[in-house]
C-alpha cells in the first residue's frame, strides 16, 4: 500500500530524467545527429549492457562505493579495496603483485575491478562464483585484508552514519556481512566502462579507425577470439596457460599461484588453468598475466601467439591487434594510446 506513491513517484521522475539525458546526449554527440545506427549482428563480441538494464539499487551502489574506500576493512587500517583496484589505474594497481595488509606482497597480479560483474567467476582461478563471495574471500585473505566479519562489524557498527546508510539501503538486514558483501558487489557491478569498440558494435561504424578495424579482424582470424569472446571479451571461460607451448617450463620457478584452477579443483587437468581475463581496458592494466611478468601489451600479444595460438604473426598484424586492444579501453577512463 504505502510503497505505491513512492514507486509511482520514481516512475514519474524517470522519464524526465532520461529525457534530459537524451537531450544532453544529442547536444554533445554529433554522431547521434546522423543516421540511426543499427547494432552489428553475428559478432562474437557483444556491447556492454547499459547500467540501467542491470536495475541496481542506487543506494546500494553509493554505499558500496563508500565501503570500497574504507580502510577499516583491513586489519591494520591501511588497505581498502581501492588500494589494489584504483579507478585511475584501470581498476587495478599497475603492480606486478599487489601490496596488501601490513605491506605484504601478494602472490598474484590484481585483475581490474571494471566490468568484473560480467565475469562468470571471480579471481584468476575462478574460486568465487559471485562478487559477494569474492568480497568474503578478499576480506579474509591473510595477505589482502586479513579481517573477519565479526571484528569488522564491531568496528563499523560504531559508525552511526554508515549504519544509517545501511538501514536505508537494507531495511531488513541492516549492517551485516551479507549486506556489506552485496553493497560492494552492487558497486562493482555498476563499474561498467563502455568503449569506442562498444559504440562500433552498436553500429557506429566510425568509432574505430581502419587500423583498429583491421586489428579486430586479425583478432578474430588468428583465433584470439576463441577464448576472448562474449560481452566481456573474455571472462566467461577457463583456459590452460600454455596449451601450444609450455609457458611455465620456459619461465621457471613455479609457484602455487601458477597452478591456477588446480588449487580449487585438485584435478590434474586443471593445472595452469586460469580464467580467461577480460580484455576490456587491457591497455590500462599492465603488467600482464597472473604473474605480472609481462610489461607491455605487445609482449603480451607475443606470449599469447606463442603459447596459446601456437602460431606466428607478422609484426604489422600484431601492431594492428594492439591498436584494436586499445580501442577496448573505457572512454570515461581517459583511454591512453
Amino acid at each position: 500500500m504505502f510503497t505505491l506513491p513512492i514507486g509511482s513517484g520514481v516512475r514519474l521522475c524517470l522519464p524526465i530524467f532520461s529525457a534530459r539525458l537524451l537531450l544532453t546526449a544529442f547536444i554533445l554527440s554529433p554522431m547521434s545527429l546522423t543516421v540511426v545506427a543499427e547494432p552489428l549482428v553475428g559478432e562474437p563480441l557483444s556491447p556492454l549492457p547499459t547500467l540501467e538494464s542491470l536495475q541496481l539499487d542506487p543506494n546500494k551502489i553509493k554505499l558500496g562505493e563508500r565501503l570500497f574506500h574504507d580502510t577499516r576493512f583491513s586489519r591494520d587500517n591501511s588497505t581498502a579495496c581501492v588500494s589494489c583496484h584504483s579507478l585511475s589505474k584501470g581498476g587495478a594497481d599497475g603492480r606486478k603483485n599487489s601490496i596488501g595488509v601490513r605491506q605484504q606482497m601478494g602472490v598474484i597480479n590484481a585483475p581490474t575491478i571494471f566490468n568484473s560483474g560480467l565475469n562468470f567467476r571471480q579471481f584468476w582461478d575462478g574460486r568465487s562464483d559471485s562478487l559477494e563471495d569474492q568480497v568474503d574471500k578478499v576480506v579474509h585473505d591473510a595477505r589482502e585484508l586479513d579481517m573477519n566479519w565479526e571484528d569488522l562489524l564491531k568496528l563499523l557498527s560504531t559508525d552511526a552514519s554508515l549504519v544509517a546508510e545501511f538501514n536505508t539501503a537494507y531495511p531488513q538486514e541492516g549492517l551485516q556481512a551479507s549486506s556489506i558483501q552485496n553493497a560492494l558487489a552492487s558497486y562493482q557491478r555498476s563499474l561498467l566502462t563502455p568503449s569506442r569498440f562498444d559504440r562500433y558494435l552498436l553500429g557506429d561504424s566510425k568509432a574505430l579507425d581502419q587500423d583498429e578495424l583491421k586489428g579486430y579482424q586479425l583478432f578474430k582470424d588468428y583465433g584470439c577470439i576463441a577464448c576472448h569472446q562474449g560481452v566481456n571479451i573474455g571472462g566467461n571461460m577457463f583456459q590452460k596457460f600454455g596449451v601450444m607451448d609450455d609457458y611455465f617450463a620456459k619461465r621457471g620457478s613455479i609457484s602455487a599461484a601458477d597452478l591456477g584452477r588446480f588449487n580449487v579443483t585438485q584435478q590434474e587437468a586443471d593445472k595452469h588453468v586460469f580464467k580467461v581475463p577480460s580484455l576490456r581496458n587491457v591497455a590500462l592494466t599492465a603488467p600482464y598475466f597472473h604473474d605480472g611478468m609481462t610489461d607491455t601489451l605487445e609482449d603480451a600479444v607475443d606470449v599469447m601467439f606463442r603459447h596459446q595460438l601456437g602460431r606466428t604473426a607478422s609484426e604489422v598484424d600484431k601492431r594492428m591487434i594492439v591498436k584494436f586492444l586499445n580501442s577496448l579501453s573505457g572512454e570515461a577512463l581517459g583511454a591512453k594510446p
Binding site: 563480441l45 557483444s46 567467476r121 569472446q229 562474449g230 566467461n236 571461460m237
Partner: peptide, 10 residues
C-alpha cells in the same frame, strides 16, 4: 559465436 549463452545458467 561466443560462450556467453553457455555461462548464463550460472
Amino acid at each position: 559465436k561466443n560462450y556467453d549463452q553457455v555461462t548464463t545458467p550460472l
